[in-house]
Amino acid sequence: MISFGNLARKPWIWSWMAAFLVWFATIMVTGGASTLGLSQAALTFAAFSIIVGIGQMFVITLGPGNIDLSVPATMTLAGTVALKLMNVENGMVVPGLLVAVLIGLAVGVGNYALIKALRIPPIIATLSMSFIVQSAAIWTNRGLRIKPPSVLADFTTSSTLGVPNVALVALGLSLIAWVLLEKSVYGRWISAIGQSMAAARMAGIPVDGARFVTYLLCAVLASVAGYLLACFSGGAALNMGAEYLLMSIAVVVIGGTAVAGGYSNVPGIWGASLFMFLVVSMLNTYGIGAGVRLIMTGLIIISVIMLAGGRRTGMR
């Protein structure tokens, strides 16, 4: 029971339990027939929110007011431009990925430049940036729907040993994120900045450098997610990033990361992402229409926040 007591104190355990409960409730209705299919679909769709959510988590860790609203626009632009560059040729897969990462780097640099140079709150800086990035995406897209190269389309839609490939990518990135957060000095730095920026500065932590890297990281992860999502869904669409604005914030918060910053964890993102997808598919299984499904999703997010949150002051 001691180990259970320790487990119950972990902030991420709740999102995992919620995900499991919803998974179980869905399986019960279908009589266990779709267990494998449901689990695979959940891992696939959760993978995108996980990748985006990790980036957002790093940003939120930086403390009150830090949030990246340019995530959806970055995803859309990266997906659009990468697909356009690859032009259905298999040989261009790597350059496509590089371009997506470059776009992420550019958006990240832009975001932090605005925050630093104009001394405006990150929400406003990333909001203005996202307007511009979104426009660039509309301009490059022009209603065209270019198919992804067949290698990538196959890779993103198939599985290895029963686990979807995109989930494996998300797992790899999560491991890196976990090492960065828990084992590296950078992870200590951003937690320290989130807990008290003034104290971090006095302790000699390179605050600006660490914040800059964090915004870069978030934008790059968003662009990688956009690249994968565009390949997975058979082409980039202008609204493809839209739902990930809420998603990236929701999974971080439901996952047990303190919204006020300074405390974060990677496993919670997984539990929360799986939970968010499973809720939608559970409501689908029960045959509930789009309107009610949206309402239920909203109410569930709010109730999870009410149960989980409400200790620390700080973030709006």
Binding site: I67, L245, L246, I249, A250, V253, V259, G289, A290, G291, V292, R293, L294, I295, M296, T297, G298, L299, I301, I302, I305, M306, G309, G310, R311, R312, T313, M315, R316
Partner: peptide, 23 residues
């Protein structure tokens, strides 16, 4: 009262309003 982050609560509410509108 619950000391919640307004961003997350209102994002959740945006789903609720959108759902009601679709209905």
């Amino acid at each position: 009262l619950r000391n919640l982050p307004s961003i997350v609560v209102t994002l959740g509410m945006s789903f609720v309003w959108a759902g009601l509108a679709v209905l």
